[in-house]
Write a protein that binds this DNA or RNA. Structure first.
Length: 411
DNA sequence: GCAAGACCTGG
DNA sequence: CAGGTCTTG
Protein backbone atom coordinates (compact mmCIF):
# COMPACT_ATOMS: atom_id res chain seq x y z
CA UNK A 1 0.00 0.00 0.00
CA UNK A 2 1.27 3.47 -0.86
CA UNK A 3 2.26 5.59 2.05
CA UNK A 4 2.60 9.21 2.93
CA UNK A 5 6.22 10.08 2.41
CA UNK A 6 8.54 11.87 4.80
CA UNK A 7 11.61 13.90 4.05
CA UNK A 8 13.92 11.58 5.95
CA UNK A 9 12.90 8.63 3.78
CA UNK A 10 15.13 9.74 0.92
CA UNK A 11 15.80 13.12 -0.58
CA UNK A 12 15.58 11.92 -4.16
CA UNK A 13 11.80 11.93 -4.02
CA UNK A 14 11.79 15.51 -2.91
CA UNK A 15 12.34 18.77 -4.65
CA UNK A 16 12.93 22.04 -2.92
CA UNK A 17 12.96 25.77 -3.24
CA UNK A 18 14.52 28.45 -1.10
CA UNK A 19 12.04 29.89 1.38
CA UNK A 20 12.71 31.24 4.85
CA UNK A 21 10.32 30.54 7.68
CA UNK A 22 9.78 34.26 8.04
CA UNK A 23 8.17 34.09 4.60
CA UNK A 24 6.15 30.97 5.21
CA UNK A 25 5.17 28.85 8.17
CA UNK A 26 3.39 25.76 6.93
CA UNK A 27 1.94 24.83 10.30
CA UNK A 28 0.26 28.19 10.80
CA UNK A 29 -0.68 28.91 7.22
CA UNK A 30 -2.25 25.54 6.49
CA UNK A 31 -4.14 25.18 9.75
CA UNK A 32 -5.51 28.66 10.40
CA UNK A 33 -8.86 28.11 8.73
CA UNK A 34 -8.35 29.44 5.22
CA UNK A 35 -8.16 25.98 3.67
CA UNK A 36 -9.88 23.01 5.27
CA UNK A 37 -8.19 20.19 3.43
CA UNK A 38 -4.58 20.06 4.59
CA UNK A 39 -3.63 17.42 7.15
CA UNK A 40 -0.45 16.93 9.08
CA UNK A 41 0.35 13.39 7.97
CA UNK A 42 3.67 13.18 9.80
CA UNK A 43 5.41 15.59 12.10
CA UNK A 44 5.88 18.81 10.16
CA UNK A 45 4.63 17.14 6.97
CA UNK A 46 1.45 18.46 5.39
CA UNK A 47 -0.48 16.58 2.73
CA UNK A 48 -3.18 18.02 0.52
CA UNK A 49 -4.33 18.65 -3.03
CA UNK A 50 -3.10 21.38 -5.35
CA UNK A 51 -4.04 21.51 -9.01
CA UNK A 52 -5.51 18.04 -9.11
CA UNK A 53 -2.50 16.29 -7.60
CA UNK A 54 -1.59 15.23 -4.09
CA UNK A 55 1.38 16.95 -2.50
CA UNK A 56 3.26 16.52 0.74
CA UNK A 57 5.07 19.61 1.97
CA UNK A 58 7.59 20.16 4.73
CA UNK A 59 10.18 22.75 5.53
CA UNK A 60 13.55 23.29 7.12
CA UNK A 61 14.99 26.64 8.14
CA UNK A 62 15.53 28.10 4.69
CA UNK A 63 13.99 25.50 2.44
CA UNK A 64 10.52 24.44 1.40
CA UNK A 65 10.41 20.78 0.35
CA UNK A 66 7.70 19.22 -1.77
CA UNK A 67 6.80 15.81 -3.07
CA UNK A 68 4.11 15.19 -5.67
CA UNK A 69 2.51 11.77 -5.76
CA UNK A 70 1.98 10.02 -9.01
CA UNK A 71 -1.58 10.30 -10.23
CA UNK A 72 -3.92 7.38 -10.79
CA UNK A 73 -3.48 7.68 -14.52
CA UNK A 74 0.05 6.49 -14.20
CA UNK A 75 -0.65 3.66 -11.84
CA UNK A 76 1.73 0.77 -12.07
CA UNK A 77 4.53 2.82 -13.56
CA UNK A 78 6.74 3.34 -10.56
CA UNK A 79 6.36 4.54 -7.03
CA UNK A 80 3.41 6.37 -5.62
CA UNK A 81 -0.05 4.96 -5.39
CA UNK A 82 -1.15 1.53 -4.61
CA UNK A 83 -1.83 -0.18 -7.90
CA UNK A 84 -5.04 1.58 -8.60
CA UNK A 85 -7.48 -0.95 -7.27
CA UNK A 86 -7.63 0.51 -3.80
CA UNK A 87 -9.85 3.40 -4.65
CA UNK A 88 -12.13 1.58 -7.04
CA UNK A 89 -12.65 -1.19 -4.54
CA UNK A 90 -13.63 1.28 -1.96
CA UNK A 91 -16.17 2.82 -4.28
CA UNK A 92 -17.74 -0.53 -5.10
CA UNK A 93 -18.44 -1.16 -1.48
CA UNK A 94 -20.84 1.73 -1.30
CA UNK A 95 -24.39 0.57 -1.75
CA UNK A 96 -25.80 3.99 -2.45
CA UNK A 97 -26.57 4.22 -6.14
CA UNK A 98 -26.67 7.95 -6.29
CA UNK A 99 -23.20 7.88 -4.88
CA UNK A 100 -21.89 5.76 -7.72
CA UNK A 101 -23.56 7.84 -10.34
CA UNK A 102 -22.03 11.01 -9.11
CA UNK A 103 -18.58 9.53 -9.00
CA UNK A 104 -18.97 8.03 -12.40
CA UNK A 105 -19.94 11.37 -13.77
CA UNK A 106 -16.77 12.78 -12.37
CA UNK A 107 -14.62 10.02 -13.74
CA UNK A 108 -15.84 10.58 -17.25
CA UNK A 109 -14.46 14.05 -17.23
CA UNK A 110 -10.91 14.45 -18.45
CA UNK A 111 -8.41 14.32 -15.64
CA UNK A 112 -5.17 16.22 -15.76
CA UNK A 113 -2.36 13.78 -16.43
CA UNK A 114 1.10 14.24 -15.12
CA UNK A 115 3.56 14.31 -17.99
CA UNK A 116 6.10 11.52 -17.98
CA UNK A 117 9.06 13.84 -17.79
CA UNK A 118 8.95 15.66 -14.51
CA UNK A 119 8.49 19.28 -15.28
CA UNK A 120 10.17 20.70 -12.24
CA UNK A 121 9.80 24.25 -13.34
CA UNK A 122 6.04 24.08 -13.77
CA UNK A 123 5.60 22.27 -10.48
CA UNK A 124 7.64 24.83 -8.65
CA UNK A 125 5.69 27.59 -10.32
CA UNK A 126 2.45 25.97 -9.23
CA UNK A 127 3.67 25.90 -5.65
CA UNK A 128 4.91 29.47 -5.79
CA UNK A 129 1.55 30.52 -7.15
CA UNK A 130 -0.39 28.64 -4.48
CA UNK A 131 1.60 30.29 -1.69
CA UNK A 132 1.95 33.61 -3.55
CA UNK A 133 5.64 33.57 -2.80
CA UNK A 134 6.20 36.62 -4.97
CA UNK A 135 4.60 38.61 -2.17
CA UNK A 136 7.37 39.53 0.25
CA UNK A 137 5.75 38.76 3.56
CA UNK A 138 8.71 39.93 5.64
CA UNK A 139 8.42 43.41 4.18
CA UNK A 140 4.70 43.50 4.82
CA UNK A 141 5.18 42.40 8.45
CA UNK A 142 7.57 45.30 8.91
CA UNK A 143 5.08 47.77 7.52
CA UNK A 144 2.22 46.43 9.59
CA UNK A 145 4.35 46.38 12.70
CA UNK A 146 5.50 49.95 12.17
CA UNK A 147 1.92 51.15 11.80
CA UNK A 148 0.47 49.04 14.58
CA UNK A 149 2.05 48.29 17.92
CA UNK A 150 -0.29 45.47 18.76
CA UNK A 151 0.45 43.74 15.49
CA UNK A 152 4.17 43.98 16.14
CA UNK A 153 3.65 42.31 19.49
CA UNK A 154 1.78 39.37 17.98
CA UNK A 155 4.08 39.13 14.98
CA UNK A 156 7.07 38.26 17.15
CA UNK A 157 5.65 34.76 17.47
CA UNK A 158 3.16 34.38 14.65
CA UNK A 159 5.52 34.72 11.72
CA UNK A 160 5.14 33.49 8.18
CA UNK A 161 1.36 33.47 7.96
CA UNK A 162 0.39 34.19 4.39
CA UNK A 163 -2.73 33.94 2.28
CA UNK A 164 -3.04 30.98 -0.01
CA UNK A 165 -4.20 31.51 -3.55
CA UNK A 166 -6.91 28.90 -3.57
CA UNK A 167 -9.07 27.57 -6.33
CA UNK A 168 -12.12 29.87 -6.35
CA UNK A 169 -14.64 27.05 -6.59
CA UNK A 170 -13.15 25.19 -3.65
CA UNK A 171 -12.94 28.40 -1.67
CA UNK A 172 -16.50 29.52 -2.33
CA UNK A 173 -18.17 26.20 -1.65
CA UNK A 174 -16.06 25.52 1.41
CA UNK A 175 -16.89 28.85 2.98
CA UNK A 176 -20.58 28.46 2.37
CA UNK A 177 -20.22 25.61 4.84
CA UNK A 178 -18.78 27.88 7.53
CA UNK A 179 -21.99 29.65 8.49
CA UNK A 180 -23.16 28.98 12.02
CA UNK A 181 -20.43 26.41 12.31
CA UNK A 182 -16.99 25.66 13.75
CA UNK A 183 -13.73 24.59 12.16
CA UNK A 184 -13.57 20.97 13.23
CA UNK A 185 -16.98 20.25 11.80
CA UNK A 186 -16.30 22.26 8.64
CA UNK A 187 -13.21 20.15 7.98
CA UNK A 188 -15.24 16.96 8.18
CA UNK A 189 -17.94 18.35 5.95
CA UNK A 190 -15.53 19.48 3.24
CA UNK A 191 -13.80 16.13 3.38
CA UNK A 192 -17.08 14.28 2.95
CA UNK A 193 -18.02 16.63 0.13
CA UNK A 194 -14.87 15.74 -1.77
CA UNK A 195 -15.11 12.04 -1.10
CA UNK A 196 -18.71 11.99 -2.20
CA UNK A 197 -18.58 14.17 -5.32
CA UNK A 198 -14.94 14.72 -6.22
CA UNK A 199 -12.85 12.70 -8.64
CA UNK A 200 -10.65 10.20 -6.80
CA UNK A 201 -6.93 10.86 -6.95
CA UNK A 202 -5.57 7.90 -5.08
CA UNK A 203 -4.96 6.55 -1.62
CA UNK A 204 -2.11 6.88 0.87
CA UNK A 205 -2.11 4.77 4.00
CA UNK A 206 -5.75 4.72 5.10
CA UNK A 207 -6.60 8.03 3.48
CA UNK A 208 -8.16 8.48 0.05
CA UNK A 209 -7.68 11.75 -1.75
CA UNK A 210 -10.07 13.46 -4.12
CA UNK A 211 -10.29 16.54 -6.20
CA UNK A 212 -12.69 19.19 -5.07
CA UNK A 213 -16.01 18.55 -6.87
CA UNK A 214 -16.58 20.30 -10.15
CA UNK A 215 -19.42 22.77 -10.59
CA UNK A 216 -21.32 20.31 -12.73
CA UNK A 217 -21.04 17.61 -10.09
CA UNK A 218 -22.33 20.03 -7.47
CA UNK A 219 -25.15 21.28 -9.68
CA UNK A 220 -26.90 17.93 -10.01
CA UNK A 221 -30.35 18.00 -8.45
CA UNK A 222 -29.59 14.89 -6.40
CA UNK A 223 -26.86 16.74 -4.54
CA UNK A 224 -28.98 18.49 -1.94
CA UNK A 225 -30.45 15.27 -0.57
CA UNK A 226 -27.05 13.60 -0.62
CA UNK A 227 -25.40 16.39 1.28
CA UNK A 228 -28.16 16.52 3.84
CA UNK A 229 -27.48 12.86 4.48
CA UNK A 230 -23.85 13.78 4.97
CA UNK A 231 -24.76 16.26 7.67
CA UNK A 232 -24.63 19.56 5.77
CA UNK A 233 -27.96 20.73 7.13
CA UNK A 234 -29.53 23.72 5.46
CA UNK A 235 -26.27 24.48 3.63
CA UNK A 236 -26.89 21.54 1.32
CA UNK A 237 -29.39 23.54 -0.69
CA UNK A 238 -27.07 26.54 -0.94
CA UNK A 239 -24.30 24.44 -2.42
CA UNK A 240 -26.45 22.85 -5.08
CA UNK A 241 -28.29 26.07 -5.92
CA UNK A 242 -25.09 28.00 -6.26
CA UNK A 243 -23.45 25.52 -8.55
CA UNK A 244 -26.48 25.49 -10.78
CA UNK A 245 -26.92 29.24 -10.72
CA UNK A 246 -23.30 29.85 -11.60
CA UNK A 247 -23.33 27.40 -14.47
CA UNK A 248 -26.65 28.55 -15.88
CA UNK A 249 -26.41 32.31 -15.51
CA UNK A 250 -22.68 32.97 -15.61
CA UNK A 251 -20.76 30.06 -17.06
CA UNK A 252 -17.99 27.88 -15.77
CA UNK A 253 -15.27 30.51 -16.04
CA UNK A 254 -17.17 33.12 -14.10
CA UNK A 255 -15.52 32.68 -10.71
CA UNK A 256 -11.98 32.80 -12.07
CA UNK A 257 -12.95 35.80 -14.15
CA UNK A 258 -13.70 37.72 -10.97
CA UNK A 259 -9.97 37.73 -10.28
CA UNK A 260 -9.62 40.58 -12.74
CA UNK A 261 -12.58 42.53 -11.38
CA UNK A 262 -12.19 45.26 -8.74
CA UNK A 263 -12.69 44.15 -5.15
CA UNK A 264 -16.11 45.63 -4.48
CA UNK A 265 -17.43 44.55 -7.85
CA UNK A 266 -16.30 40.98 -7.29
CA UNK A 267 -17.77 40.97 -3.79
CA UNK A 268 -21.13 42.26 -4.96
CA UNK A 269 -21.18 39.65 -7.69
CA UNK A 270 -20.63 36.90 -5.13
CA UNK A 271 -23.29 38.34 -2.86
CA UNK A 272 -25.94 37.62 -5.46
CA UNK A 273 -25.52 33.92 -4.66
CA UNK A 274 -27.76 32.28 -2.06
CA UNK A 275 -26.00 31.66 1.23
CA UNK A 276 -23.27 34.15 0.38
CA UNK A 277 -23.34 37.37 2.31
CA UNK A 278 -20.61 39.91 2.96
CA UNK A 279 -18.49 37.79 5.23
CA UNK A 280 -18.27 34.74 2.99
CA UNK A 281 -17.86 36.94 -0.09
CA UNK A 282 -14.93 38.65 1.59
CA UNK A 283 -13.34 35.32 2.41
CA UNK A 284 -13.58 34.22 -1.19
CA UNK A 285 -12.25 37.55 -2.44
CA UNK A 286 -9.28 37.45 -0.09
CA UNK A 287 -8.40 33.78 -0.33
CA UNK A 288 -9.00 33.00 -3.98
CA UNK A 289 -9.66 36.14 -6.01
CA UNK A 290 -6.52 38.17 -5.35
CA UNK A 291 -8.25 40.85 -3.28
CA UNK A 292 -5.68 41.45 -0.56
CA UNK A 293 -7.64 44.40 0.80
CA UNK A 294 -10.69 42.29 1.61
CA UNK A 295 -11.11 41.95 5.38
CA UNK A 296 -13.67 39.29 6.33
CA UNK A 297 -15.56 40.55 9.37
CA UNK A 298 -17.09 37.92 11.61
CA UNK A 299 -18.01 38.07 15.26
CA UNK A 300 -14.51 36.94 16.11
CA UNK A 301 -12.81 39.75 14.23
CA UNK A 302 -15.27 42.17 15.74
CA UNK A 303 -14.13 40.98 19.17
CA UNK A 304 -10.52 41.57 18.17
CA UNK A 305 -11.34 45.08 16.99
CA UNK A 306 -13.03 45.92 20.26
CA UNK A 307 -10.59 44.17 22.56
CA UNK A 308 -7.26 45.03 20.96
CA UNK A 309 -8.04 48.25 19.12
CA UNK A 310 -10.56 49.85 21.40
CA UNK A 311 -12.92 49.95 18.50
CA UNK A 312 -15.99 51.73 19.78
CA UNK A 313 -18.57 52.23 17.08
CA UNK A 314 -21.34 49.68 16.90
CA UNK A 315 -21.08 48.56 20.49
CA UNK A 316 -24.76 49.07 20.90
CA UNK A 317 -25.55 46.62 18.15
CA UNK A 318 -26.08 42.93 18.59
CA UNK A 319 -25.00 41.65 15.22
CA UNK A 320 -22.65 42.77 12.50
CA UNK A 321 -24.83 44.77 10.19
CA UNK A 322 -24.21 46.68 7.00
CA UNK A 323 -22.58 49.90 8.05
CA UNK A 324 -20.72 48.37 10.94
CA UNK A 325 -19.31 45.78 8.61
CA UNK A 326 -17.96 48.32 6.18
CA UNK A 327 -16.63 50.53 8.94
CA UNK A 328 -14.59 47.81 10.61
CA UNK A 329 -13.14 46.83 7.25
CA UNK A 330 -12.25 50.43 6.50
CA UNK A 331 -10.74 50.79 9.94
CA UNK A 332 -8.33 47.93 9.33
CA UNK A 333 -7.59 48.97 5.77
CA UNK A 334 -6.68 52.40 7.00
CA UNK A 335 -4.48 50.88 9.67
CA UNK A 336 -2.68 48.25 7.59
CA UNK A 337 -3.03 49.38 3.99
CA UNK A 338 -3.74 47.49 0.78
CA UNK A 339 -2.83 44.07 2.22
CA UNK A 340 -5.09 44.50 5.23
CA UNK A 341 -6.71 41.12 4.68
CA UNK A 342 -3.34 39.42 5.02
CA UNK A 343 -2.59 41.23 8.25
CA UNK A 344 -5.99 40.38 9.65
CA UNK A 345 -5.33 36.69 9.09
CA UNK A 346 -2.27 36.92 11.33
CA UNK A 347 -4.28 38.27 14.24
CA UNK A 348 -7.05 35.83 13.53
CA UNK A 349 -4.64 32.95 13.64
CA UNK A 350 -3.12 34.19 16.88
CA UNK A 351 -6.57 34.10 18.43
CA UNK A 352 -7.33 30.49 17.61
CA UNK A 353 -7.56 28.17 20.57
CA UNK A 354 -5.42 25.57 18.86
CA UNK A 355 -2.49 27.99 18.89
CA UNK A 356 -2.92 29.04 22.46
CA UNK A 357 0.32 27.31 23.40
CA UNK A 358 2.14 29.58 20.96
CA UNK A 359 0.44 32.66 22.26
CA UNK A 360 1.58 31.84 25.77
CA UNK A 361 5.10 32.52 24.58
CA UNK A 362 4.18 36.16 24.12
CA UNK A 363 3.89 36.58 27.88
CA UNK A 364 7.33 35.09 28.37
CA UNK A 365 8.79 37.59 25.99
CA UNK A 366 7.14 40.68 27.39
CA UNK A 367 6.31 40.69 31.06
CA UNK A 368 4.67 44.08 30.79
CA UNK A 369 2.60 45.09 33.78
CA UNK A 370 -0.37 46.52 32.03
CA UNK A 371 -0.83 43.70 29.59
CA UNK A 372 -0.57 41.11 32.30
CA UNK A 373 -3.41 42.76 34.12
CA UNK A 374 -5.57 42.73 31.04
CA UNK A 375 -4.88 39.09 30.43
CA UNK A 376 -5.75 38.19 33.99
CA UNK A 377 -9.04 39.91 33.62
CA UNK A 378 -9.75 37.91 30.51
CA UNK A 379 -8.64 34.63 31.95
CA UNK A 380 -10.30 35.18 35.29
CA UNK A 381 -13.71 34.33 33.98
CA UNK A 382 -16.33 35.09 31.42
CA UNK A 383 -18.65 36.94 33.70
CA UNK A 384 -16.18 39.59 34.64
CA UNK A 385 -15.15 40.07 31.05
CA UNK A 386 -18.69 40.49 29.93
CA UNK A 387 -19.35 43.00 32.63
CA UNK A 388 -16.38 45.03 31.53
CA UNK A 389 -17.57 45.00 27.96
CA UNK A 390 -20.99 46.13 28.96
CA UNK A 391 -19.54 49.06 30.81
CA UNK A 392 -17.47 49.93 27.78
CA UNK A 393 -20.43 49.68 25.51
CA UNK A 394 -22.39 52.11 27.62
CA UNK A 395 -19.51 54.54 27.44
CA UNK A 396 -19.23 54.12 23.75
CA UNK A 397 -22.84 54.71 23.05
CA UNK A 398 -22.43 58.14 24.55
CA UNK A 399 -19.30 58.74 22.54
CA UNK A 400 -21.02 57.53 19.43
CA UNK A 401 -23.84 59.97 19.87
CA UNK A 402 -21.32 62.77 19.91
CA UNK A 403 -18.50 62.19 17.45
CA UNK A 404 -19.59 59.06 15.66
CA UNK A 405 -17.08 58.47 12.92
CA UNK A 406 -14.20 60.65 13.92
CA UNK A 407 -13.63 58.97 17.22
CA UNK A 408 -12.38 55.71 15.80
CA UNK A 409 -10.19 57.11 13.12
CA UNK A 410 -7.89 58.61 15.69
CA UNK A 411 -6.85 55.12 16.66
C1' DG B 1 -31.36 50.00 7.93
C1' DC B 2 -31.73 47.12 12.29
C1' DA B 3 -33.62 43.34 15.36
C1' DA B 4 -35.49 38.77 16.00
C1' DG B 5 -35.99 33.89 14.82
C1' DA B 6 -35.17 30.07 12.21
C1' DC B 7 -31.91 27.07 10.23
C1' DC B 8 -28.78 21.57 10.54
C1' DT B 9 -25.74 19.33 13.61
C1' DG B 10 -22.80 18.16 17.25
C1' DG B 11 -19.42 19.20 21.03
C1' DC C 1 -23.86 28.24 21.37
C1' DA C 2 -20.66 27.98 17.01
C1' DG C 3 -15.98 32.15 12.57
C1' DG C 4 -23.47 33.22 9.29
C1' DT C 5 -27.46 34.05 6.13
C1' DC C 6 -32.27 34.63 4.99
C1' DT C 7 -36.79 36.16 6.04
C1' DT C 8 -39.95 39.19 8.35
C1' DG C 9 -41.56 43.17 10.85
Amino acid sequence: MAKHTVLSSGAKLWRSLACAKSELRLDLTLACGQSFRWRETAEGHWTGVIGGRVWTLTQTDDTLWYHIYQSLDRQGETSGWEKGAGVSLQLENKSDNRFKEAVKKEEEEPVAVTPVHQDTKEDEEMLRDYFQLNVKLGDLYKEWGAADHHFKHIADIFTGIRMLRQDPTECLFSFICTSNNHISRIQGMVERLCQSLGAPLGQLDQTSYHNFPSLSALADTSVEARLRDLGFGYRARFLQQNAKQILVTHGIQWLEGLRSAPYLQARDALRTLPGVSTKVADCVCLMSLDKAEAVPIDTHVWQIAKRDYNYGSGNGQKTITGELHRDIGDFFRQLWGPYAGWAQSVLFCADLKKFRNLKEMLHMKRPKKKENDEEELTVAGKKRKIKKEKIDSVKNIKVKAGHHKKAKKSA
